[in-house]
Design a binder for these strands. Structure first.
Lengths: 174, 174
DNA sequence: AATGAAATCGACCAGCA
DNA sequence: TGCTGGTCGATTTCATT
């Protein structure tokens, strides 16, 4: 029951190296990976499959550029709700189901939800906020525009703290 | 110079259908895709390549489960800076470079940056906040814990508003 | 857990509508 | 420009260690 209880099975440094590579770019060939890691192609393939089976790799996905869709406007909206207990899960599901909403966080604090959404125009944002306010239980919203985004490509394996890395490599097999 | 100016080239409904599918799961075989879309394997492949060349598909990536790394704690940190102008880009780069930080948004409003980070323990979060405060120009921070996340798998194509969809399909070729 | 060989699937090309 | 069908190369699978 410590901070690492859900780790699927022991990951070694080779697994981390593979993850750091494919989390950023899965289009790399098995041959290139095998050379970089000094392993046979089959061994790399075997480890990738194991990582998928273990759920460490949840899925392989295409990363679509929102700008290619004209989605140039990002907003962060704080949402407070009326009944604070019990309904939060339902309201979270309602929020994430709204077209244009990308991420929803339920937080401790004076605002209950932080909602990040992406749209084309200010009109679309106004419309989205109307659709948020229409959700039963939503009390008040307050939005701010994002001027600039700094992103990470979601490369979790390459982005963990040193302490977290130690903790992962120290795990033994289930 | 309208809201859709950066759209790479005209996308049709077939492209959108392909994107909706592969943005969620790129592990689907060409054959399955071809059957689902009533197209030949080569045609699907041709369109996928075009979408990559156009930059609509930025990359293909492995989606790693943060819980598999014991990263159970998410925090949203508001960061205000001392010199409001000029240095914002530098500070944003500094923030995103910190281990544990996933996303950074530079906003209009009383807080300047919204930082979303993911760590294993409260100690690691404290350490991360120390590393944020140490950045030159950072004035004040205020963090809240995330109790629950609602996520979208970042499926942009399946998540655009109807208005945005109309706007995209209505485009003509450059 | 890793290997090499055999079967399957995806990438690429020339040509066509 | 978008698509087809075929070839080649890469990936997946499997028996074996």
């Amino acid at each position: 029951m410590n901070g690492t209880r859900r780790i699927a099975s022991s990951l070694d440094e080779m697994d981390l190296a593979i993850l750091e590579r494919v989390e950023d770019d899965f289009d790399v060939s098995l041959e290139t990976l095998a050379e970089e890691l000094d392993l046979s192609k089959s061994a790399v393939h075997y480890r990738l499959n194991k990582l998928k089976d273990n759920g460490v790799i949840r899925s392989v996905t295409a990363d679509v550029d929102p700008l290619a869709f004209g989605l140039e406007m990002v907003a962060i909206t704080d949402v407070s709700v009326t009944h604070e207990t019990g309904y939060s899960e339902d309201i979270g599901e309602e929020l994430i189901a709204r077209q244009g909403v990308e991420q929803v966080y339920y937080t401790m604090g004076d605002v209950d939800f932080v909602v990040i959404s992406r749209v084309q125009t200010r009109d679309q944002l106004n419309d989205l906020i109307d659709r948020i306010v229409a959700i039963d239980g939503v009390n008040e919203t307050s939005s701010k525009f994002v001027m600039q985004e700094f992103e990470n490509n979601r490369t979790i394996a390459a982005n963990i703290t040193d302490a977290a890395r130690e903790s992962i490599l120290g795990m033994s097999t289930d």
